[in-house]
Write a protein that binds this DNA or RNA. Structure first.
Lengths: 202, 202
DNA sequence: TTCCGCATGTAATCTGTTACATGATTAC
DNA sequence: GTAATCATGTAACAGATTACATGCGGAA
């Protein structure tokens, strides 16, 4: 039920159209920790309106017609109720971590370094973007929101620091010790070799 | 297509049953950055077998019958191919951040402090768990995997540090400055008041 | 006049979870 | 003997994306 709440939250900043909300998630702070596509957004807006959380205001800003949505009493109430509930733990899906966890000794470490460089660029760009954005004098961020921005910055800085450490470990061939109490790494290589020796039967 | 690859990755450690794979995602490293339920796991295993990435080995470990899956040549190849591809950016959904971003001045800051305390406990527990786990002499983690563990630790430490800073800011009434070039905060409170004054019509 | 950004939407599809059903083995 | 854990699966549903369809207004 949380996408709906994110939508209510964005509308709370100012009356917004579907397009406005999408850009908030694409180009603004909200997108750092949440995502959304038109395919789910517009149906949700209809549902939220049908349930009485928001109402439509026909408007033409800049000579362009659009449907603005505004929160109702019920909508504001729902927003407050949601804000008051303990937030659920973050959901993180990070392919980089999965790849690290399943890297094996037949895979080239230089390739891993490329992956790290790539992540470094992405996260670096994002961090730069956030740092500019928090001072751009265009976007609305209140003092609590600023704590959130700081949260994002610290996480990205930690990630970048870790990437540099890891790249150094790879380049200096100074990797940390693993733990392998049952000799699985050796087994793995044997199993792999065995599989590669079998003829394809299908 | 990444859940499938995570499954292949787990099987690469050792031949595994569906149950084994699930516990890997529930209690082990993999679960830190990925999740999976039986409802998707078992069908995926069937599909992976039908596509020739894995094969079944009937086995009875500890007197208990189970279906172990092992990678085929094609499966190992697919795993290597996946490992070689640039990992996609992490997907993060964090309700705490969304709530920070949409907090408004009618909401009690002490309530926010409770949310932060709650996250502090969750993340603290997780960090403690990881720190123990990396030295438990029971789990297989190679040196590259250890980099991943370090990644998780640093992120959690950054989060905990941020929480303490933020709690202090709240308690000392020393919140950071926001930015509000168009006076949206004032507008918001007006809109909110207006909405609460209207009679319910539905 | 053509392209880009604004603007709204739907249908098909994909992806994954929840809840249920079933049963064996082990620890207390 | 009974609760917990091991073990495999399915049906119904929830949740979200992709690709498509459509059209206006302003800038080059």
């Amino acid at each position: 039920m949380s996408i709906e709440h994110s939508i209510l939250a964005v509308i709370s900043f100012r009356p917004s159209s579907g397009y406005d909300i999408k850009s908030e998630f694409e180009h603004k702070a909200a997108g750092l920790f949440w995502g959304m596509s038109y395919g789910s957004l517009y149906p949700k807006l209809k549902k939220l309106e049908a349930d009485g959380f928001i109402v439509t205001i026909e408007a033409d800003t800049d000579g362009r017609k659009k449907k603005l949505y505004e929160l109702t009493k019920k909508g504001w109430g729902e927003l407050d109720k949601w804000l008051g509930m303990t937030p659920s733990p973050p959901i993180i899906k990070d392919e980089l971590f999965m790849k690290l966890a399943s890297w094996h000794s037949e895979m080239d470490l230089d390739l891993l370094a490329l992956h790290l460089e790539s992540r470094k660029n992405e996260s670096g760009d994002l961090l730069k973007y956030i740092k500019e954005w928090r001072h751009n004098q265009k976007s609305y961020i209140n003092s609590v929101g600023m704590l959130g921005i700081r949260y994002a910055e610290l996480k990205l800085e930690a990630e970048l620091k870790w990437i540099d450490e890891s790249l150094e470990a790879i380049n200096n061939q100074d990797m940390p010790d693993g733990q392998d109490p049952f000799g699985l790494e050796e087994e793995l290589l044997k199993r792999r070799e065995r599989a590669f020796k079998t003829l394809d039967k299908e």
